[in-house]
Amino acid sequence: MSKNIYIVRHCQAEGQPPESQLTEEGFKQAEELALFFSHIPVDRIVSSPFLRAIQTVKPLSKEWNISLEVDDRLAERTLSSVDLPDWMEKLEATYEDLDLKFEGGESSRDAMDRIVCVVEEAFKSDAENIIIVTHGNIMSLLLKNYQESFGFEDWKNLRNPDVFLLKRGVVPFRLT
Rank of each mutant, 00 (worst) to 15 (best):
M1K: 12
K3W: 08
K3E: 10
R9M: 09
H10C: 09
C11W: 03
Q12D: 14
Q12A: 15
A13G: 11
E14F: 02
E14N: 08
G15M: 10
P18W: 03
S20A: 15
L22S: 05
L22A: 03
Q29K: 03
Q29G: 01
E32S: 11
L35P: 02
L35R: 14
L35Y: 06
F37W: 09
F37N: 05
V42A: 12
R44E: 14
V46F: 04
F50A: 13
L51A: 10
I54M: 14
Q55S: 00
Q55N: 01
Q55V: 03
T56M: 07
P59N: 10
P59E: 07
L60Q: 02
S61M: 01
E63G: 02
E69G: 06
D71L: 08
R73W: 00
L79Y: 13
D86C: 02
K90Q: 13
L91M: 14
L98S: 02
D99N: 13
D99S: 09
D99P: 02
F102K: 01
E103S: 07
E103T: 10
E103M: 05
G105M: 08
S108D: 00
S108P: 00
S108I: 02
R109H: 06
I115C: 12
V119I: 15
V119S: 06
E120G: 07
A122C: 15
F123A: 08
F123W: 14
K124F: 08
S125K: 13
L141M: 12
L141E: 01
L142W: 00
E148T: 12
F150H: 07
D154P: 01
D154L: 07
W155R: 00
W155Y: 03
K156D: 04
D162S: 07
V163A: 09
L165Y: 11
L165G: 09
L165W: 10
R168A: 06
R174K: 14
T176I: 08
T176G: 09
